[in-house]
Simulated scan of single mutants.
Amino acid sequence: MNFRPALAAPLAALLLLAGAAPARAAWDVATLMGELARNPGGRATFTEKKYIALLDRPVVSSGEMRYVAPDYLEKRTLKPRPELLLLDKDQIVVERGKQKITLRLTEQPEILAFVASIRGTLSGNRAALERNYALHLAGTREAWTLTLSPSDTRIAELVTRITIGGKRGQVGSVEYLQADGDRAVMSIEPVATP
């Protein structure tokens, strides 16, 4: 008895169904950047822990953030002391108490490259990121980690690596490892808009 003709039709049907099933979208840097680019911005709360070699315990701060794509970011620290960090186009403003410092990013290339890591990630601008960093993506769409390793020696003198974690097109954590060994870890929680 020959089973080949009897099996041929069911196998062909299975192969056709398998071919007709939608292919699972590849999870890669391009896909992540596309999802991040679709995020118009929003509000979030944050908690940041800074681990400094000279201190026994981390310095903890918390507050609120607001992002408007592609180049406006406001970080308002509420605890332990009020502070405002504002990135708007090519300008950075820092306010602490009665002190206010305003810098043009074009005059500060190292700061500009560091800011580009934040803005580039939030806006899904891969080209901006790759100007100064090598990108490595790990995980899945539901739990991803993007590691930025400086490719510019001036930036590498300040930052060893930046690790950004998230879910889909939403950033949930940012960790900066400085060249001197100090590091900062920020947890970000989106605030639902009414």
Rank of each mutant, 00 (worst) to 15 (best):
V115F: 05
K50H: 09
S173I: 04
N125G: 04
A26D: 14
Y51P: 06
E95M: 05
A30G: 09
V171Q: 01
N125R: 11
A53P: 09
I92P: 03
M186K: 01
N39K: 03
L177E: 07
E130F: 04
L7Y: 12
L148P: 00
V174N: 05
G97V: 00
N39F: 08
R168T: 09
P109M: 07
A6V: 15
P194D: 07
P190A: 09
V59A: 11
A23I: 11
E95V: 08
A23Y: 10
Y133Q: 02
A6L: 15
K49Y: 12
A127Q: 11
E142V: 08
R141K: 14
R57V: 10
R104C: 07
L78C: 00
S187R: 09
L129R: 01
A12C: 14
A184R: 12
Q170G: 00
L11M: 14
V191R: 11
K89M: 12
D88E: 15
V159R: 01
T77R: 02
G42L: 04
G41K: 07
A143C: 03
G63T: 03
D90R: 06
E74R: 15
A69P: 04
G169W: 01
I52D: 05
T47V: 06
T193L: 15
R119N: 12
V68G: 08
I118R: 05
A192D: 11
E48L: 03
R154D: 08
P109F: 07
A23F: 10
Q170F: 07
S117W: 03
E175T: 09
T147C: 00
R96A: 05
E189T: 14
T45L: 08
L177G: 03
D152G: 02
Q91L: 10
V191I: 14
L14S: 11
L54N: 12
L87F: 13
A12M: 15
A37F: 01
Y176H: 07
R4D: 15
V174R: 01
L36I: 05
P40D: 05
A156H: 01
A179E: 07
S149N: 04
G169E: 04
Y176G: 00
P10H: 13
M1E: 14
G97K: 06
L84Y: 07
R161W: 02
D182R: 10
N2T: 10
T160E: 10
L103E: 08
T163Q: 08
R141F: 06
R76P: 00
D56M: 12
H136T: 13
A184K: 09
A6E: 15
D152P: 01
P109R: 04
L78V: 08
E35S: 06
V59N: 09
Q99P: 02
A26Q: 13
R57Q: 13
K98N: 11
A127E: 15
L158K: 14
R96M: 04
S149Y: 03
A128D: 05
F46L: 00
D28A: 06
A44G: 04
Y133E: 00
S173Q: 02
A116D: 14
H136G: 07
T153D: 13
R183I: 06
G42E: 03
E35D: 10
T163P: 01
E95T: 08
E107Y: 11
R131Y: 05
R154A: 13
P150F: 00
E157Y: 11
V159S: 02
D180V: 14
A13F: 10
